[in-house]
Design a binder for these strands. Structure first.
Lengths: 150, 150
DNA sequence: TATTGTTATACTCTATAACTATA
DNA sequence: TATAGTTATAGAGTATAACAATA
């Protein structure tokens, strides 16, 4: 256990909040500027990854999982469909729903990405943080996750 | 020291990267939807806070510190000037530069914000994380900072 | 010639509102 | 009537390019 901070005061929490907000923006800008041709946005990548991890899903399900509106997710999904990475098939019993899943091209994209270590964020984490710090960052993810949960 | 993870493999690093990217987007969307009237954007808040912490600065200095272009920072700063929270005064010796600093209204805004604990992010950190977890999150900030550094 | 800052313009992401189709 | 999804439109945030003023 870390012992550096006995218990953050509310001023320290505010400082963390302010810093996190600033870092959020900086990370986002850095991610965008590092994105090359053939790369996809954060939302697009998140969708691809989620479909890989959890299998087929509808637009509404994806929107809910990523904390955005279905209209916005609709645009994200439409782009990925045009790009040929995901495909929508009608739900067998409910005609309103469209089940989205990865195409072979989508699966191949993920694998190629992983093999090539093309991901700027992953490369940077590995290059700039020690293994212990990488673990520390990884351990902080569940905390961030809880912050965005309803 | 945490001992849960002996040394993250490159697959784990990729997983962290993917998760961080998704959480980044979710946090940003949540921050936006929680923003009420009279609130300012992440970039705007970051500028206000930085001026408070480090004193007067130019547009170029602020842009560099936040990792964005001076044209973009110009827009952010222009809005804050219109809102009356910051003011620009000509540099005494270098006529090209404009030194930006907080107005009394800007200082008052920060103080009111703090006193009222109006900040959604700070409130959420305090409400959803234990003191130890708050410290853990705070400790992760320097790691994120190093990721965005050039 | 280099630097500070501004203006014009465009792109991405996301939101709200209104609509269609199916249940 | 409620739900899944689409289309139209708007706004915020940021980028690039071109320019003006000062050093």
């Amino acid at each position: 256990m870390h012992k550096r901070k006995p218990g953050p005061s509310s001023i320290q929490v505010m400082a963390t909040a302010v810093e996190l907000r600033s870092l959020l923006g900086q990370l986002r800008r850095r991610l965008r500027e590092q994105a090359g041709t053939g790369d996809y946005s954060a939302s697009q990548t998140a969708v691809i990854r989620r479909l890989e991890r959890e299998g087929p899903a509808t637009v509404t399900m994806l929107a809910h999982a990523e904390g955005m509106r279905s209209q916005s997710m609709g645009a994200t999904v439409a782009y990925l469909q045009l790009a040929g990475l995901i495909i929508g098939t009608p739900h067998p019993t409910d005609g309103r729903q469209t089940l989205l899943s990865l195409t072979p091209a989508g699966v191949a994209w993920i694998k190629a990405k992983r093999a090539a270590r093309e991901d700027w964020l992953a490369r940077t984490i590995q290059a700039k943080l020690s293994p212990a710090e990488q673990a520390q960052l990884s351990d902080a993810m569940p905390l961030l996750k809880r912050l965005v949960e309803p």
